[in-house]
Design a binder for these strands. Structure first.
Length: 316
DNA sequence: AGCATTTGACCAAG
DNA sequence: CTTGGTCAAATGCT
């Protein structure tokens, strides 16, 4: 995934995607006031429009920053932003840059672990195309895939246990995708997790599905955490599980907040798949959206912008 | 009852 | 021998 994400051949497309997302971002920003001056809107509609636009803008902003960070020429940031996920290629001893990145983030114990890894990362002759990558995220349990936990270990030199997951469909589809989640020791809020993925999903169930635009994003198209994050910002505007006041005060989309209230090993494991206990992936209600467009002309703009946004991600 | 998670034991690489 | 990764029986949840 990260390999495709960073492929030089895609540089032009990346630039174009960044420009396109930036354009949509600017247009949403400019047109946002239009939604607020329609006096015939109900106050709840105004709040919903405001909330949705705000979330969309935030998601676009995050997407842009991540896209720009993934440019091939400049060295990627060694300190990932707390509020977004950053994907870095991992465990490729023949890649000096990737190795340098890992040196910056890995403890001696972690480096040792990588050398002695007996996973499929370095098996066989395929030693140049690593199937392992690292993702720094605040939402390690919501990456668009379904995982089953199969182990937990206390790792030397870390304050938190490491949880091991494999694809839920390993038995059904023979999917060999695995990941392990390690909370970083930093005292940042929300806490940052290092998620190390091994092997791409080979199961059909592993596809990221964005029902809003009926887009299916293959893993290499967009980092899962980012896709979920962007998608979460476009969640059903009529599904108000939080009062508007709380929505205003919440600095992060639901998908970017701590799952199920904490990162302790005893609580995280109950919330490891997309169908978490605290917030299922929202399903955008198209009937509601259509009705909203009908009743509120401003939603035409919103709909158009979000369509463009999804097209941008689809293209990307 | 069936499924997912927990957790101690085991395996293998360094 | 140490330790990261995996296994599988026990346990918990729905």
């Amino acid at each position: 995934m990260a390999a495709a994400w960073c492929m030089p051949a895609a540089a032009d497309e990346r630039e174009r995607a960044v420009a396109e997302v930036a354009q949509v971002y600017e247009r949403i920003k400019i047109q946002q006031p239009l939604l607020q001056v329609h006096h015939h809107y109900s106050s709840s509609h105004q709040q919903l429009a405001q909330s949705l636009l705000s979330d969309a803008l935030r998601a676009l902003n995050v997407a842009l920053s991540v896209m720009k960070q993934q440019r091939p020429s400049p060295a990627p940031a060694t300190t990932p932003p707390v509020t977004s996920s950053v994907v870095v290629k991992a465990e490729s001893p023949r890649s000096p840059s990737a190795s340098a990145d890992n040196e910056a983030i890995a403890t001696p114990t972690e480096r040792r672990a990588k050398k002695r890894s007996r996973s499929s990362v370095m098996e066989g002759n395929n030693k140049t195309s690593s199937s392992s990558w690292v993702d720094f995220t605040t939402v390690p349990y919501e990456d668009g895939y379904e995982w089953r936990k199969y182990g937990e270990k206390k790792i030397n030199g870390t304050s938190y246990t490491r949880s091991y997951f494999r694809c839920t469909y390993k038995d059904d589809a023979g999917c060999l995708a695995t990941k392990h989640v390690q909370q970083k020791d930093s005292s940042s809020d929300p806490p940052v997790f290092q998620v190390t993925y091994n092997n791409k999903h080979t199961c059909n169930n592993g596809k990221l599905i964005l029902p809003f635009m009926n887009i299916k994003l293959e893993p290499p198209v967009l980092p899962p955490a980012l896709a979920v994050q962007a998608y979460s910002a476009l969640h059903d505007p009529f599904d108000q599980t939080m009062p508007p006041s709380q929505q205003e005060s919440s600095s992060l989309p639901v998908s970017m907040q701590q799952p199920c209230g904490g990162a302790t090993s005893s609580t995280t494991s109950s919330c490891i798949s997309g169908e978490s206990c605290c917030d299922e992936y929202p399903v955008l209600n198209m009937a509601h959206m259509a009705a909203a467009v009908e009743a509120s002309p401003g939603y035409d703009l919103l709909y158009e912008e979000l369509s463009l946004l999804c097209d941008s991600f689809k293209f990307y």
